[in-house]
Amino acid sequence: MKVLIVSDSHGLTKDLIELKKKYRTEVETMIHCGDSELDAHSEAMSSYIAVRGNCDFDSNYANEQLVSIKSNGLAFYVTHGHLYNVKMSLMNLRYRAEEVGANVVCFGHSHIAGAELIDNMLFINPGSIILPRLRKEKTYAILEVDEAKNCVVRFFSIDGKEIPQLMVECKIG
């Protein structure tokens, strides 16, 4: 099973549409972690499970979503991160993820790409496809999970080139 994860696109439409076209037959789910700054019903946001970021003003976005992906039984908690102060610490986000029973936590806000396993929960920030921080590449992530819940998170620049030094491998459960 594969999941495409993007965040902090801040008004981009062309790149979101291109990512959907590129991965529509490769991934089971597409997630946008907020700050799209687009209408929830726009063409660019269709097909994405999306949440509201601090720069989103469409009230059709929820602040958080808990999504169960049936092919592997994992619970994905999706939020932007600003309500949990993720620029300072992941502790508040970890507590919320534990409350809702999440296995995978997808968030954005900091524009810093990375993934890590904390207390048997996989945290993924795909970075930003327009305004990256701490690196020059504009990034998104692809999570691959097998039946045994072995996970590989790969990060790509917006032009589709993998960034190997960001890759994270782990097992959930």
Rank of each mutant, 00 (worst) to 15 (best):
F156D: 13
H82L: 01
R154A: 10
N72H: 15
R24D: 13
S42V: 01
P132N: 05
H10A: 07
V153G: 12
A97E: 04
H109C: 05
H82R: 05
E64F: 05
N103S: 14
P164N: 10
R94G: 12
A75W: 00
L122K: 11
A44N: 02
L131W: 10
F123W: 05
N150L: 06
R135S: 01
V105C: 15
F107Y: 15
D58W: 00
I163R: 06
L4I: 09
S89V: 00
N125S: 08
A97I: 01
L143T: 14
L166M: 09
F107V: 07
E169L: 08
C151P: 12
E37N: 11
V104C: 13
I124Y: 11
H109T: 07
V6G: 03
E116P: 03
L12S: 15
E99Y: 04
A148M: 12
V152W: 00
T139K: 05
S89T: 11
D39Q: 12
A102I: 05
F155C: 02
H82E: 13
K87F: 03
N92L: 10
F123Y: 12
G81S: 08
D58H: 03
H80A: 04
N103C: 01
K20L: 00
T139H: 04
L38N: 10
S59P: 05
Y48R: 12
E169G: 10
F76C: 01
L12K: 15
H32Y: 08
V100L: 13
E28N: 15
L117Q: 09
F76A: 03
V78N: 13
N85F: 12
R52A: 00
V3Q: 03
G127R: 10
F123Q: 04
A44W: 00
V168M: 14
H80Q: 12
K20H: 08
A102F: 10
F155A: 12
Q65F: 00
M45L: 07
A113L: 07
T79G: 06
S36R: 09
V3K: 04
V152E: 14
H109S: 04
S7W: 03
E64D: 14
N120I: 02
S71I: 02
Y48H: 14
E147A: 13
F76G: 01
Y84P: 07
L143G: 09
H10E: 08
E98Y: 04
